[in-house]
Design a protein around this nucleic acid. Sequence first.
DNA 1: TTCTTGATTGAATGGTCAATCAAAGAAGGG
DNA 2: CCCTTCTTTGATTGACCATTCAATCAAGAA
Lengths: 199, 199
Amino acid sequence: MDTRTKIILAAMELFWLKGYNSTSVADILSRTQLNSGSLYHFFPSKQDVLIAVLEFLRDGIGEMLLAPAWAGIDDPIERIFALLASYRRMIVESDCTYGCPIGSLALELHEPDPKVRELLAANFTGWANAIEACLIAAGNRLPCGLDRAALAQFVLTAMEGGVMQARTHRDVAFFDRAVSMLRAYFESLEQGVQARARA
Amino acid sequence: MDTRTKIILAAMELFWLKGYNSTSVADILSRTQLNSGSLYHFFPSKQDVLIAVLEFLRDGIGEMLLAPAWAGIDDPIERIFALLASYRRMIVESDCTYGCPIGSLALELHEPDPKVRELLAANFTGWANAIEACLIAAGNRLPCGLDRAALAQFVLTAMEGGVMQARTHRDVAFFDRAVSMLRAYFESLEQGVQARARA
DNA sequence: TTCTTGATTGAATGGTCAATCAAAGAAGGG
DNA sequence: CCCTTCTTTGATTGACCATTCAATCAAGAA
């Protein structure tokens, strides 16, 4: 594996574990067994490492996140809840310390460089677009007038809010309740379509 | 105003504007026109300032947040959306840089001291309890079997997720869409009760 | 062999940070 | 007036941090 990639992977994990500000360049160097000069040969500054990490996450959402979560699941609406279930798994596996890497960075960086902010937004957009594709694939199971882009964003909203509370309370139940409320909303949407079909 | 309170107010604002790690003790001192010794006379460490700020927010939620948002509004469900509207106002007034002080701290601090974590959780609980009280006051306008504590948490979830995305995209529309999805969910709950009453 | 280029080394720099502490000041009771 | 207690002063400390840079190394091209 080349040096640049090693740095990106180590930084990604450290930013996720400790946050951006609390991760020192020395942390990245000790984890990769590199010297500072090597890092600064490939990246002009620590912030450029962050940018590379965010680009890596943005470009890898399909293979790294969606594909594993959707393996063996074809129903578009079940895919949405399968993705949420994969977050649940990460929460449990981390003893409720899991935080969405993008969400955590989005709230940690208070005056982000425009490029960083745009990449955070692009990561959110990529996630929401994947959900929107599911909602479109669900076709007429959902009301035809439904704003599917808005609902896709709402799924992201529920995930981020649920993860935040589960982590703060150190209790998955807070995530589970958010998902079950979302599920109830989806069921009311589907039942609304059926009721109108009967009438 | 006594020194201790001056420090808490200045720190509260700075933690909200810049985050905890990016706020230096020197920042707090220059804003309060105090010397380091004064701060360390009242607080053993910077973290104890954070603890005092979180206690201040927890104890002041009624007067500082709910009372202004609910002035002149009696309907319990409208109170929920009035509170969300007050967040919308803060988002707009800050040019979409607003972040919930608790949510931001909850995601910024990756390995929080137990006391800090518990205070963050207590702040969330206080917020959700206020919403739950509204949901209970709404009586039989909502389904009797509804888990009102879970729905109250979901309102917090939607607020935090909406604020996060509005800030990241620098666009209130992301908050508005989250609120309108929540509104649609409430309407489907209320209509469900009416439909059952007619049957 | 010689030159060139990119990659790596690791000590050094300048700056910021939280926290300390001895000394001085203020206020009040006796 | 003294004594006590609380409060404030502000220079100082030592740790850590991002970044720099001159020097070295490896390997291919000429």
